[in-house]
């Protein structure tokens, strides 16, 4: 793979370490002169010093037909955008990844042709929301840009579904129990599987149905 890494300090260092293998060609561009020399000394690779949003610097670095370009300078979103667009439109780079300062720009960048814009606050917000929106028993996560949601529910004894076969409980059609974790085993359930207390159910559904699923599962037994 031909990988281009633009700017960034510790992040660049880390990524170079990760991808420094024989099969990868690394091209490193950095706009900090001292850090550029540090990178080239520690990793023993050529580092180009310059602003990577300039066409001539990218030409000099010969990034034509690279597989991935990673832009790590988080200070200015416009610079990041220009690096990505230049790489895509003029240098035929297959995939561009950039860090974004303003989380609002993530969706805009995606629409304007950047493959994966990454914002730390966007990711943080996502995970905070996933952790806090539901009860303490239940953890949830989402896959593929929030189109699929996975909920983890720990069954307690007072749940209505406890100690019953899955085929008996009339599970809603919009969701599916994809797996049950019963220490120390992982069970792929079928209709005959009995749900026991302290089981962890992993339920897959659409995000819009997530609340309904949680409501359904955590109904308590009618007294």
């Amino acid at each position: 793979m031909k990988i281009v890494i633009c700017d960034g300090h510790n992040e660049a260092d880390y990524i170079i370490k990760m991808f420094k293998k024989k099969e990868n060609t690394l091209i490193v561009i950095n706009n900090d002169k001292n850090y550029a020399s540090y990178l080239s000394k520690t990793h023993r690779i050529p580092v180009i010093y310059g602003d990577s949003y300039k066409k001539n610097i990218l030409e000099e670095a010969n990034i034509y037909n690279a597989d991935v370009l990673i832009a790590l300078n988080e200070t200015n979103d416009a610079n990041q955008f220009v690096i990505c667009t230049l790489a895509k439109s003029l240098f035929n780079v297959k995939k561009v990844i950039c860090t974004v300062k303003n989380p609002n720009n993530v969706d805009l960048f995606k629409e304007l042709g950047v493959d994966s814009p990454i914002s730390s606050s966007y990711l943080l917000g996502n995970s905070v929301r996933a952790e806090s929106s539901v009860e303490s028993l239940i953890k949830s996560m989402t896959l593929d840009d929030n189109k699929i949601s996975m909920v983890e529910v720990t069954v307690s004894e007072n749940f209505a579904i406890c100690n019953r076969k899955i085929m008996e409980i009339n599970f809603p059609k919009f969701a599916n129990i994809s797996c049950i974790y019963r220490k120390p085993n992982v069970i792929i359930p079928n209709g005959q599987t009995i749900i026991l207390p302290k089981d962890k159910l992993l339920i897959v559904s659409a995000p819009i149905d997530q609340k309904k699923v949680i409501e359904y599962v955590s109904r308590t037994k009618e007294v």
Binding site: V106, D107, N146, A206, I208
Partner: peptide, 16 residues
């Protein structure tokens, strides 16, 4: 239709 619903229910709706 249900499929379009899912797309509208984007968690972080920073939509212009």
């Amino acid at each position: 239709s249900k499929i379009t619903k899912v797309e509208e229910e984007n968690l972080f709706a920073f939509i212009p």
